[in-house]
Structure formats: C-alpha cells, structure tokens
C-alpha cells in the first residue's frame, strides 16, 4: 500500500509505532561547533531530522562497538535485547545494503553469530530514498538504487513537504491503514526527477569487482594513494560494512566477562604477532588491506558483492580528506592498463 502524510503529522504515526517498537531515528546533536546527525532512540519525534544522511551508520545496532558476550568461566552467554522490537527509522539504501553485506558474514552456516542474528531478528528498518545525492556518496556507481531497496517492510520518500510510505509488509499495514492513500503516478514522477539528479552527478566507477587479487595486490599505486593517510581508524569505524573485531575481558568480582569490540585493519596492533613480527607493517600495506578486503577478497568470497555500499562516510569523515573514489579510479586505470597488456593491446 502507498500512503502519504504531511511531515508535521509524522509524530502521530510514530506515537502508534512506539507502543510496539523502540524507535531509533536520525536526530541532530551539537558538539561545540560540530553539528552531527546521529541515530538515537527518540522520545520527542519533532527531533527527527531526515534532510541529510546521518554522519554515523546504523551498524552499531547490529554490531555494537562494545558488546558483552557472556561470562567466561560458566560459558553463559548474554543477549541484551530489549522488551520491544527495535525500529530504525529512515535508513537510506546504502545503509540497508550494508546490513545485507554483513548478513552472509555473520549468518554463515559454519559459525552463525547468535548475537548478530538475535539483533537482526529483533530489528525492523524503514528505508528512506535519497531525493538528492548526499555528500561524497556514489551508491549508484556500485549498482545500489538510492531510491529503492529489497526486502524492506516499509520504504519511505521525502519530497520536502510530505512523507510517502511504500508499505510492503502485511503485518505493519495496521499502523498505516487510516492514513491517506498516495498517488503512485505522482510518486513515480517525483522519483524520476530525483533519479535524473543522480544521473547528472554520477561518477561511474568501472573498476572490475572483484579486483583480480594478485594483480591488484602487487600494483604500484598503494604507496601513492596512502601517502597522506594518518593511520587512524575513522574510515573503518564510520564504515557501515567494516566488521573486524577483537575481544577484551573485564573482571567483575569472581566473574570474567568477555566482550567483543570493534577493531580496525588500519591499526598496526591489529595484526602484530606476539613475536613482534607484523605482516602488515606499514600504513600503505594496511590501506591496501582495507581496500582489497572490500573490493577483492570479500567479493571473491561472497558472490561478487563488494564490502562497500558507497555511502561516502570514509571520505567525509577522514581527517585529511582521503577519497575512496580517487583510489577506485586509480585502481580502475591501473587494472584496465594491466588488462590491455594481457590481451596484447
């Protein structure tokens, strides 16, 4: 069903949903001079801010930065899911895709990650189309539709004045039943308009995915693209798909809790052996690992899908403005040249 309401009426709808769901939505937070859009649990629905992509991805609701796994001596697991299901409101196509990218990693047949699985089962996401390109994003270059997503119970559109709800899950229809119907032709016209805005600004990345492993690994450009990299973990911690982790332990009286925590391939300690040997000693090796993991290793292992949803946060948040698109373009040029050499061209 297609429904449409004025944006000022959103509160009433969320009020109803609030009985059944813990509602997480993008809100503005001001820290000193910095204005950020972040996902938080909302009580005051007027706070919700949908005008731009949130600065942080919703990854932490599936993989919290610090997550208590359980008590080690007893082996007792802890699952911290609340009384209500979680509804994450206004998740854009890139971030929806990112969760899809994480699924086969954590729900594999060999070792299903129960913590991720339970959070996923306990969460519903309402998608939100992008009526214009967001800062530094390039989802359309990786085949992601900024105006639609699969397997989403509700996908929304914001035309500035009104919010459109494409309700696809029967069990949620009750919340929308008494809202005014939307005119699907009108929505199609709007979408076409927005779509053309994306086409006008598309970069077009024609890099082969997966990157051919050895050719790309041994390519000469890694030092160049990583020359100004500071070696912090911002790109990985703001990435909606980066999932590398580590463990730490915390004593509570007699009990010992095992925690899982985000870790980053950009940190030297990540791969440093006890002996002091480090297979990824330098920053360009670590940058190579990050990019190769996303565009070569991961798609090799997971049906050609890169571990990147092109949200652009690694670019926007990088303290020295390193641009993933430039790295991909560099790789594109090199890998194409290499291809040309191979085919005798």
């Amino acid at each position: 069903m297609l429904k449409v309401i004025g944006k000022n009426e959103l509160g009433k709808l969320l009020e109803k949903l609030n009985d059944k769901f813990r509602i997480i939505a993008p809100v503005i937070r001001q820290y000193g001079k910095k204005e950020r859009v972040e996902y938080h649990q909302v009580e005051d629905f007027d706070e919700i801010f949908l005008d731009r992509q949130p600065d942080t991805p919703p990854k932490k609701f599936f993989l919290p930065q610090n997550e208590r796994l359980g008590e080690e001596k007893s082996g007792e697991q802890v699952f911290e899911t609340g009384d209500r299901k979680t509804l994450i409101f206004g998740v854009r196509s890139c971030d929806l895709k990112a969760i899809d990218i994480l699924k086969p990693v954590f729900l594999d047949n060999d070792f299903t990650d129960t913590y991720f699985e339970k959070r996923l089962e306990n969460t519903v996401m309402f998608g939100l189309g992008c009526s214009k390109r967001q800062e530094n994003c390039f989802c359309d270059s990786l085949g992601i539709d900024p105006l639609d997503a699969e397997n989403i119970p509700v996908y929304m559109y914001d035309d500035g004045e009104r919010l459109w709800f494409d309700v696809r899950a029967g069990e949620l229809e009750e919340f929308f039943a008494d809202l005014p119907d939307g005119n699907s032709e009108e929505l199609e016209r709007l979408k076409k308009d927005w779509q053309s805005g994306f086409e006008d600004t598309k970069i077009g990345i024609e890099v082969p995915i997966p990157f051919p492993e050895l050719v790309a690994f041994n390519a000469p450009f890694w030092k160049e693209v990583a020359a100004n990299c500071l070696g912090c973990g911002v790109c990985t911690y703001y990435c909606p798909t980066c999932f590398c982790f580590g463990f730490f332990w915390e004593k509570r009286e007699e009990e010992i809790d095992k925690w899982r925590t985000w870790d980053s391939c950009m940190f030297p300690l990540f791969t440093k052996h006890g002996s002091g040997h480090n297979p990824r000693e330098t920053q360009d090796q670590r940058t190579r690992q990050r990019i190769m993991h996303k565009f070569s290793y991961h798609p090799h292992n997971f049906e050609g899908v890169p571990a990147c949803s092109a949200c652009g946060r690694c670019i926007s948040q990088c303290p020295v403005n390193i641009d993933l698109r430039v790295i991909l373009k560099t790789a594109e040029k090199h890998l194409k040249d290499e291809e040309g050499v191979k085919s005798g061209g």
Binding site: N136, N228, I315, V320, N321, D323, R325, V326
Partner: peptide
C-alpha cells in the same frame, strides 16, 4: 584540493 571532494588534502 581533492578532485571529487573539493576539500583540502595534503599532497606530495
């Protein structure tokens, strides 16, 4: 200046 970002970036 970055090609796509238009932002300042250290160069060598």
């Amino acid at each position: 200046r970055g090609v796509f970002t238009g932002e300042i970036t250290p160069i060598f």
